[in-house]
């Protein structure tokens, strides 16, 4: 059975790769299978791990307040589905508003507590920090701190748009954009690595699992 699945996977991989030559029915076939199977998989997962245990089973098993509070999410779910009926699609906005409100509440507290404050704290670094007996090491370490502080401050200045970037502000924003460009370059390099890794993964599968040449 495994052999059959390996052959199917190899055939679909080659069908997707065939797009590199040009668009063709094999590619379209594989693409549609991927989209269809992903959607089906999501549907099954949401049914078995969300709707069934959290709503249906919970309704049967719970009593009192814990049982009847489930009516609220059930109604919100039905309201969300009204999007498919144009005449009453506006009702879905209430459910969306609930989701957005909850998301914003969680997002804001999460971002402040988990990102902004710790990151600002991590940027408040001493510009000279002896951490070793070696002066050279201390110099390198302190240079790192300096770069981090300078990069953060100048990058923020780059996004200050209330005044024209001239004079001192111009210099700071130019330094800031240099840091930002270095970050983009690093990201781009990593992205190339990621894409090549995917190709390596597929080629390894074809030559190892399918053809047994490796």
């Amino acid at each position: 059975m495994n052999v059959l699945w390996t052959w199917i996977a190899a055939g679909l991989t080659l069908a997707i790769f065939s797009f590199l030559y040009k668009d063709n029915p094999f590619y379209k076939f594989a693409e549609h299978i991927y989209v269809g199977s992903s959607a089906a998989f999501w549907f099954i997962y949401l049914w078995y791990f969300d709707i069934k245990p959290k709503l249906l089973d919970a309704w049967v098993m719970n009593t009192g307040f814990e049982k009847y509070i489930l009516i609220v999410p059930a109604i919100l779910s039905v309201m969300m589905l009204t999007r498919f009926i144009p005449q009453i699609a506006w009702i879905s906005r209430w459910a969306i508003a609930f989701t957005v409100g909850m998301g914003a509440g969680l997002g804001i507290t999460g971002a402040l507590q988990g990102f902004l404050v710790p990151q600002v704290q991590a940027t408040m670094l001493p510009l000279w920090e002896p951490v070793s007996s070696s002066t050279l090491y201390n110099l390198g370490h302190s240079l790192n701190n300096l770069l981090l502080v300078l990069g953060t401050i100048t990058a923020i200045f780059y996004f200050y748009f209330s005044r024209e970037h001239k004079g001192g502000l111009g210099v700071l924003s130019k330094i800031g954009i240099t840091f930002i460009m270095v970050a983009f370059g690093a990201s781009f390099g990593y992205t190339i690595m990621a894409r090549v890794s995917l190709l390596i993964g597929r080629i390894y599968f074809l030559f190892h699992d399918w053809l047994h040449l490796v």
Partner: peptide
């Protein structure tokens, strides 16, 4: 993390998070 995501996670490492 994937290589695409990893650069965004370095600040967490630097901050000790």
């Amino acid at each position: 993390a994937t290589a695409v995501v990893a650069p965004d996670l370095y600040p967490y490492l630097q901050a000790g998070q």
